[in-house]
Amino acid sequence: MGLNRRVRFFAGLRYRGGGPMWAWMLHRVTGVALILFVGTHVFASFFMQQTGNDFATTINIIYESWIFQVIVAFIVIFHGLNGMRIAILDIWPRFQMFQREALWLQWFIFIPVYGLTVVILIQHGLTGGY
């Protein structure tokens, strides 16, 4: 009887939930990326120090390059701020009537913090860092 209830990935993506839904998806993606990148960095550092493995050293050089750090900074700062927004709204549900404003406030904090971080990373990168 009827079609299966299964919601395919792209069907879900096509749902127009707006800003809060995109923030949630980005939170998921940045969460996975954090585990992947930072985890790889930790393992690579361990093997680089203990064995001097060339592959591990290469991974760390890429990870610590300023271009990659610009990406990592986005992931860390967005995930941290979005997580704080959600935690605050969960702990004090009465603030949820301002959830749209909370999302704007999050970007209002994110843009200068991330912008400044990127400027510092680029300055550092162009003046002799990786």
């Binding site: 749902y15 939930g17 809060p20 949630w24 959600i86 959830q99």
Partner: peptide
């Protein structure tokens, strides 16, 4: 997960 799709 406090996504707000339901409220909207």
């Amino acid at each position: 997960h406090t996504i707000f799709n339901c409220t909207i």
